[in-house]
Amino acid sequence: MRLVIVDYGMGNIRSIISSLNYIGVSDVAVSSNYDILKASDKLILPGVGSFGKAMNRIKERNLDAYLHEFVIDYKKPILGICLGMQLMGKSSNEDGDNDGLGFVENSVRKFETTTFKIPHVGFNQVMVTEDSRLYSGLNANPDFYFTHSYRMMGEANINPSFCDYSEKFIASFEKDNIAGVQFHPELSQRNGLNLLKNFIDKF
């Protein structure tokens, strides 16, 4: 099993690698190279930073076309983490209006609240659906570590889980070979390690 973390120069990937190693995934590469991405069994799209900047870097490296080929045409399993999840959406209004990779139809918008502190930072509970693969075997309403100011909107057809912070928002989605989590599984203790293991085993 070879897993490749998509490298577009943004995101703290050390913790992701150490979490994968901990659950027994030792063959982990970090790359933006077409052939290396193509030869992978699974992909992780990480991300910390802003949407517009990230999409620019992805386009500079032609990764939008590569990822479309592997994820949409070849159905290679992919997990988007935090900004990586948002990038798989249709668009975002962070740094002006920007198109995303468009793997799902959902768009990304900033939290609208005057009473809650934004960014939403810390461990919070996730309400999961029964037929989820990502949360298989985890306790009910597991806690995960979030740090974000934007969230994915809409729910159509992507088996979402939800978190409650000023409103109910999408904490994760899973659709065929594509999964995204708004939180950081690599910073979420056993819950996160178990979720990563589920992505490896069940996608």
Partner: peptide, 11 residues
Amino acid sequence: ISKLVNDAFIP
């Protein structure tokens, strides 16, 4: 710090 990352799956 870069080594401690392997010991703790938290911020």
